[in-house]
C-alpha cells in the first residue's frame, strides 16, 4: 500500500499543478504510478479471501433468516452454536497470526453476537439491550486478544460504546440535557478505554494502534466537551465542567509534552475553543444579539485561525505524530 500512497501523492501534486507532465513521467521511473504485479496479487489474495468469508457468512445468515419461523428453538440454537464452533475450530488449525486466523476469529466474534441475540430472543430473559452488547463484548474479549487484529478490536470498541450508550440512555427526547450523570459516566468510561488504548494496546497489537487511539479520543471528548459546555450554563453540570478541566489539562500535557500526538492535541485545542465560546456567550448573555453574534464570530475566527497556524507550525517539527 505504501507504493500506492506514493503514487497517489504524485498524482495529487500533478493535479494541483505542482508537478508538470515531464516531471511526472520522470518520477514514474522511480515510483510506479500503477499497482505492480505484486500489488495486484496481494490485493487479489485479500479480496478473494475476505470476499468469500463475507459472502459465505452472509449466505449462512440469510439461510437462518429464511428457515427461522419453521425451526424448533433447539435447532436454531444448535445452528448458531455450530457456526461459532466451526469458525473457532478453523482459527485453531490456521497458522498463528495469519490472515486466515484473523478472518476466522472475526467471524467467530460476529457469530457469538448472533448466538447471544438468539438466546435472548428465545428465552425472553427480560434483560436490557445494553446487557446483550456488554455480554457480547465480554465473551469475545479472549478472541480479540488472540487475534491481534485491528478489525476485531474495532468491533470490540463499538460493542463497548453501544453498551455504554444504551446503559445511560433513557427514552426521553432530550435525555442528554435532563441529568448530568449519564454524560459524566460516558466520559469517565471512555477515559478508561482511552487509557487502555494508550498504555496497554501498543503492547498487545503489533500493527499501528494510532487509529484506535484516535477513535477512543473522539469518543472521550464528545461527551466531555458537551457536558462542560452545558455546565457553563447549568449548575447541575458543574461536575462535568470540573472533570473536563482536569482531564483536558492532563491530556494536553501528555500529548504535547510527553508523547506528541497532534491529532488528539488539535481535538483538545478546538474543544477548549468551543468551551471558551460557550463561556463568552454566557458572559454576554444580556447584551444585544447583533453585538453578541459578531463578537462570538470574531472570537471563533481569531482563535481557530491562531490554533491552525500553531498546529501547522508544530507539524513542521520532526518529532510529531499524526
Amino acid at each position: 500500500m505504501d507504493r500506492l500512497e506514493n503514487a497517489n501523492q504524485l498524482f495529487s501534486w500533478a493535479e494541483q499543478q505542482k508537478l508538470n507532465s515531464l516531471q511526472l513521467q520522470q518520477a514514474s521511473e522511480h515510483v510506479p504510478l500503477q499497482p505492480t504485479i505484486d500489488d495486484w496479487l496481494a490485493h487479489a489474495n485479500r479480496v478473494l479471501l475476505f470476499g468469500s468469508v463475507l459472502l459465505l457468512s452472509s449466505a449462512v445468515i440469510f439461510f437462518f433468516a429464511y428457515n427461522w419461523p419453521l425451526m424448533h428453538y433447539f435447532s436454531k440454537l444448535s445452528l448458531a452454536a455450530a457456526a461459532v464452533v466451526v469458525s473457532g475450530t478453523v482459527a485453531i488449525f490456521c497458522p498463528v497470526h495469519s490472515q486466515w486466523q484473523r478472518a476466522a476469529l472475526l467471524g467467530c466474534s460476529l457469530f457469538t453476537g448472533a448466538l447471544l441475540a438468539l438466546i435472548g430472543q428465545t428465552y425472553q430473559t427480560g434483560a436490557d439491550v445494553w446487557q446483550l452488547f456488554a455480554s457480547w463484548a465480554v465473551l469475545i474479549t479472549p478472541l480479540v486478544l488472540l487475534s491481534k487484529s485491528r478489525g476485531s478490536y474495532l468491533l470490540w470498541f463499538c460493542l463497548l460504546e453501544l453498551a455504554l450508550w444504551l446503559y445511560v440512555e433513557t427514552n426521553q427526547m432530550f435525555w442528554l440535557l435532563e441529568r448530568a450523570e449519564p454524560l459524566l459516566q460516558m466520559a469517565l468510561a471512555n477515559l478508561l478505554l482511552h487509557l487502555f488504548c494508550l498504555l496497554a494496546l501498543p503492547k498487545m497489537l503489533p500493527s499501528n494502534t494510532k487509529p484506535l487511539l484516535w477513535l477512543s479520543a473522539v469518543a472521550l471528548l464528545i461527551p466531555l466537551t458537551f457536558g462542560a459546555m452545558v455546565g457553563v450554563w447549568d449548575n447541575q453540570y458543574q461536575a462535568n465542567l470540573v472533570c473536563y478541566l482536569f482531564i483536558a489539562a492532563a491530556l494536553a500535557f501528555w500529548y504535547f509534552r510527553m508523547q506528541r500526538d497532534l491529532f488528539i492535541f488539535a481535538l483538545l485545542l478546538f474543544s477548549a475553543i468551543g468551551l471558551a465560546t460557550a463561556a463568552l456567550a454566557r458572559l454576554l448573555e444580556t447584551d444585544d444579539f447583533f453585538f453578541i453574534a459578531n463578537l462570538l464570530a470574531v472570537f471563533v475566527i481569531g482563535s481557530s485561525a491562531s490554533a491552525a497556524v500553531w498546529l501547522k507550525k508544530l507539524m513542521q517539527e520532526p518529532n510529531h505524530a499524526a
Binding site: G51, S52, L56
Partner: peptide, 23 residues
C-alpha cells in the same frame, strides 16, 4: 426469497474460493 438469495451468496462465495485456490 431469502432461501434463493442464500443460495446465490453461497455459490458466489464458492466461486471466490475457487478463484483463491487457483490464484
Amino acid at each position: 426469497s431469502l432461501f434463493y438469495k442464500s443460495g446465490l451468496l453461497a455459490l458466489s462465495g464458492g466461486v471466490l474460493l475457487v478463484g483463491l485456490a487457483l490464484l
